[in-house]
Design a protein around this nucleic acid. Structure first.
Lengths: 209, 209, 209, 209
DNA sequence: TATGAATGAGACTTCATTCAT
DNA sequence: AATGAATGAAGTCTCATTCAT
């Protein structure tokens, strides 16, 4: 009858090799369930079964279903951030850097399209919300830095918009089942450059520089 | 949880005024619950209570919770389509027509922001999926027609992308709690025109006009 | 994933005859399980099964297991209070009134000895605690009033002690399996009168009056 | 929950100093958990953690949770018996000896009030029941001997009643949070002497002897 | 037709206990 | 002997749906 507040952090960091494998297996099982059978099928018992672990073990590593989900989101976010960060860090012209970043994002989405798509509409919850915000901020931060260095006006908002419009286009394409990454990349480039170049009077000079 | 093959269509077309009012009350109750307390709070019993109808009656009008939800989505979709269609139908230049359409979409989102936002991440289900696809198609069709009439290349894809990027930007803004419709409208204009103008070689002439 | 705070009050007052019967059946089932198989066997599923009701129904009337338990305690308390109150209300000499009260308490304990005994050590919880305190207070209040009217010194504490020592003796006797109510009544009388008569100097006059 | 026939005896008598310390640590940890956080928090894993021992080790010394609990009760009982026995063994008048005993009991209760109180309502189980009976018998035996030597009629029953009424008063006082040991001692004395002196005709002579 | 009591599958989570290392 | 990861039965509670009145 005693209820402790549900934490979203893992209960214990897997210290042994075996544990790490167990945790990874559970997170991956969750991912597979979500992408194959949807949110409704994501039950802790199902995750335990699919990962070949007992339900008790699941709860030894995650204090709640929510925490497991948060870990999955964290994992995907880390991958995306890493790839995009790397891509944009390559020195070069602004358009090139952006293109690299967009391509990295696209690649991420196309690696596991169903999963990426599903994670966009996770059941809202404080911890998930937090993970999502963190992703958005980190990504926006990276891009904003790049834009600022190239003299784009209001780089924070511009970064947020660029990311948002990319997400919009990519998600819609994924939902339609598009698989032509090249076409998508081209259109994304158009959208991003169009947005950045079609600037108000104040930033015209900077953008054309 | 006895599940019979769940139909998503209302069980009966409201033929009497009273029925129509009842159905409307239930759909509106669902909308209010979703926007005020989130998806998790959307239970059929709750909907029945809030709409002043018994749970038994609810199931006389809707064969399942899913059908109720589909009806809500249908209702919102109809409103959006109507507004956007009207806005874009106003004769005028391309940029103006588009701006009208974008403004209509924005207005829709700002009428009930929480609801609009929540409906973007409805629990996926065949019928909901279908409703959503229908919306997308209808909207894209309207816009594609407009673009085609103005000689834009590949109008279907362009329409889809324009709608998608607008959704992306608007949703992200809503999520951040932005309330400045004017700023949003300006940025959306930038994004849309940027996308349409920054064209490949084939449409360069149009873009430079 | 949404947890509301567990109330101890019944969820809805049974308004129809059928409901009232259902509620009574559940409370009685709980009583029987506790007295026959002990606290460990008191599970909501078990209660539902024994009362011939579905688990869903149980939770329609009680928001939690705790609330069901509280209702049982409340029921027993009401009976005890009613009997003891009636017994002590009979006009007469102090010793006689007390004897009546003690006999009423004894009778209560002997009606369902195992239940009465078990309820003494209910798993502590806020609501149960509250019910128990209420019983103690009500009983002590009744007795304190009686004692005060007969000039006993410090009637509140005396009442509390008298009740406590009676409970102690009765419980121990019940635990040993004593069944001779007459003997028990005699000893209780001795204990109570002994306590009240063997007073400190201050109240000697009053007690002997 | 694989349940083998649970023994209540410790699995092995601690033959080495280290083992004894380990066992003591676990028992004390259990005591602390019970008094600080209540019965609901008493889990074997929690006990192991608090006592700095692995759960595996705990089960090497105790075959079950119940056995651990029994050992705790045994420990407390031994202390109480030792103190009360010593106190009553002091030669002297009957009233004095009894007063000593009562004081010893009170002192025990006040040493760790929360623990003493909690142990009164331990989850019933065969082995716990047995420990409790043993305590009662031993205590009653000691007191009965004393009473018999002083010619009190029906000393066994009198002893049982005296102990029971003391427990009743003490527990109720503890539950109310009383801390005035002196007042409590005075009232206990009244109750005990009252009970012993207010005898039926048959034992009046004996009591006054 | 409307009502709302009743249903019950199944979700999440805990915790006593085992056993490979 | 000690460790602690793993187990899984079982408990509490929810909610979509049915059906007697």
């Amino acid at each position: 009858m005693a209820k402790t507040a549900a934490r979203a952090e893992p209960r214990k960091r897997p210290s042994q090799a075996r544990s790490a494998a167990t945790v990874a297996a559970m997170v991956e099982a969750a991912a597979r369930i979500i992408e194959v059978r949807g949110w409704a099928a994501l039950t802790t018992n199902h995750v335990a079964e699919l990962s070949g672990v007992s339900i008790g073990s699941l709860y030894q590593y995650f204090p709640s279903k929510e925490a497991l989900l948060a870990e999955l989101v964290r994992r995907e976010r880390a991958m995306l951030l890493h790839d995009v960060g790397l891509a944009m860090a390559l020195e070069g012209e602004l358009p090139l850097a952006i293109e690299q970043g967009v391509m990295a994002g696209l690649a991420h989405q196309f690696r596991r399209p169903a999963l990426a798509l599903a994670l966009e509409s996770a059941p809202s919850s404080p911890s998930l919300q937090h993970e999502d915000d963190a992703l958005r901020h980190a990504l926006a931060g990276q891009l904003a830095g790049l834009l600022a260095r190239h003299g784009v006006a209001d780089p924070d908002m511009a970064a947020a918009d660029v990311i948002a419009l990319c997400r919009g286009i990519i998600d819609a394409a994924a939902l339609r089942g598009e698989t032509d990454m090249a076409s998508l990349a081209r259109r994304l480039g158009r959208a991003v450059h169009g947005y950045l170049d079609t600037a108000g009077p104040a930033s015209e000079a900077a953008a054309s520089a």
